[in-house]
Every structure is written in structure tokens, then in C-alpha cells.
């Protein structure tokens, strides 16, 4: 199909969990590749050595400042891709690599890891560790609609992607140093008088660092890995009535897009 977009998976310092998450949609990945996107670059899934031009780059992992190749490749990614997506906590916020101080076998000098937005502008953030396969699927479908859809579809895709673009814009500011951890829930939600105790942050945390005590999040900071899931899933971090109020149609459209044969 000539109308496909081109998609790449760029691997920085990450555990490949995000890549697994891309593939973890049962036959969903085949549907995406059959109908909407060609996978033009992926260390694990495509036999291509150098980063080619592509519409959308899904970048996994943070950048190690002591690894020159990583720095070159992340800059090349920005050059070659129209849309750069920070896929997962490490690319977006540093995640667990934030805790590195080097000394590990067999590259002990690899001690400084930064989110990709420290070196390049990023267009879309998908937080989480690992990011949920369904949110990757939703973003992939929306990215397709944004690039190849009709006007109504472009409008919908823009509305859907805007908050994730806003997270990326915030992360790409030079002075930005988002903690992307339970602290964000405290600083940007509870301290701002916005928390209403729904508990979504606690459910979203992959390491069970958040418990609800008397209707408010209690964050175990020793447990937090800084993946950004809690804050981005909080209904009081961002909430669009236009998008969420239209949930039936949007989820229906995504389901239809993933079942092009109508099965």
C-alpha cells in the first residue's frame, strides 16, 4: 500500500522492553505493518544498518553521554525523522537510567544518561515503563491519521496527540528538568489543589510505589523509577473534554482501524 507511513524504532540506552511492547499487541503489529506503516529501521526487527529517512521515529532509551555513537545517532534521528517520539520512560524522562553513576561492567565509564529531549527537540512523549502496547497502538493509528487522514481525521489526531506533544514540548525546553516521578503528582497536582483522589496514579505505577492513604496518593520515593506513568495518566495532569468526551467514537475508530477486514 503506497499510502503507508514509514516507521522506525531507534534503540538508545534502554532494555528493549519498549520494543517488546510494540510487538505485544498480538496480531495488532501485523495489522499496523500491513496497512499503515512500513518498518524501515529497527535493530531487532529489521535488517537495516543505518538510520534512513522516515516519517515517525520511535526512540527507546536515554542517551549515554559517554557513548559517541549514541549522540551521533540521536542527532541523525532528529535529522531523518519528521516526527520523533520518545517511546517509554527512559527516552522521555531518563527513567531508571537516571539512577546510574557508572562503574558497571563492561563500560564503567558510561555513567551519564539523559532523556533524548536534552539533546534534540522531541515531538511526542509516550511515558511509562514499559509503555502500554495499547497506547503505542493508539498513538500509531493517530500518527497515521495525522499524516495521511482527511481533515476530520487530522483534527481528531491533533486533539488526541496534543497533550502528548505538550509533554514533549515541556521536556524539550532547555531549562526543563521534569522529575517525571511521584514528585510530579505532588508538585503539579496535589500541591496545585487539583487532586480529587481517584487513584489512577496508584493503578498506573508499574512498581507499586503509590498507595492511596485517606483518599490521597502516598508516594514511596525509594520505589519510584521515574517513568512518568502516574502523572501522565492523572486526569488532572491534562484532560480534554473534546477527546475524552468522544471516547466511544475514538475507541470505535481505533478498533475499526485495527480490524480493516471487519473481523
Amino acid at each position: 500500500m503506497s499510502n503507508k507511513i514509514t516507521l522506525g524504532h531507534v534503540h538508545m540506552s534502554g532494555c528493549t522492553g519498549c520494543c517488546v511492547s510494540i510487538a505485544d499487541t498480538f496480531q495488532g503489529l501485523f495489522t499496523l505493518l500491513d496497512n499503515y506503516a512500513d518498518l524501515v529501521y529497527s535493530l531487532t526487527l529489521a535488517d537495516v544498518r543505518h538510520i534512513p529517512k522516515m516519517d515517525v521515529a520511535l526512540v527507546e532509551g536515554s542517551v549515554c553521554l559517554q557513548d559517541e555513537l549514541s549522540i551521533e545517532e540521536i542527532k541523525e534521528t532528529r535529522e531523518k525523522a519528521t516526527v520523533v517520539v520518545a517511546l517509554g520512560g527512559c527516552a522521555a524522562y531518563g527513567n531508571i537510567t537516571r539512577f546510574s553513576r557508572g562503574g558497571q561492567w563492561n563500560q564503567p565509564q558510561h555513567e551519564s544518561f539523559v532523556p533524548i529531549s536534552k539533546l534534540i527537540d522531541v515531538d511526542v512523549y509516550i511515558p511509562g515503563c514499559a509503555p502500554c502496547p495499547e497506547v503505542i497502538r493508539n498513538v500509531a493509528v493517530m500518527a497515521y491519521l495525522l499524516l495521511k487522514g482527511n481533515d476530520a481525521q487530522k483534527k481528531l489526531a491533533t486533539a488526541y496527540l496534543s497533550p502528548l506533544m505538550a509533554l514533549a514540548k515541556d521536556g524539550s525546553r532547555i531549562e526543563s528538568d521534569s522529575e517525571a516521578c511521584g514528585c510530579d503528582i505532588m508538585l503539579k497536582v496535589v500541591n496545585q489543589g487539583l487532586c480529587m483522589g481517584c487513584g489512577t496514579c496508584a493503578a498506573s505505577c508499574p512498581v507499586f510505589a503509590i498507595s492511596m492513604e485517606y483518599g490521597k496518593p502516598n508516594i514511596d520515593r525509594e520505589m519510584c523509577i521515574k517513568c512518568g506513568a502516574c502523572y501522565s495518566s492523572c486526569p488532572r495532569s491534562f484532560f480534554s473534554f473534546d477527546v475524552c468526551g468522544d471516547y466511544e467514537n475514538i475507541l470505535g475508530a481505533i478498533t475499526a482501524a485495527m480490524n480493516p477486514g471487519g473481523n
Binding site: 511492547s21 505485544d24 509516550i126 511515558p127 511509562g128 515503563c129 514499559a130 509503555p131 502500554c132 502496547p133 495499547e134 497506547v135 493508539n138 488526541y160 497533550p163 502528548l164 489512577t200 493503578a203 498506573s204 505505577c205 508499574p206 517513568c227 512518568g228 506513568a229 502516574c230 501522565s232 495518566s233 477527546v243 475524552c244 471516547y247 475514538i250 475507541l251
Partner: peptide
Amino acid sequence: AQLYPVGLR
């Protein structure tokens, strides 16, 4: 959470 299921695989 259904539209942006970040940590809810």
C-alpha cells in the same frame, strides 16, 4: 485511561 492507557497494559 482507556484512551491513554499509559501504565495499564
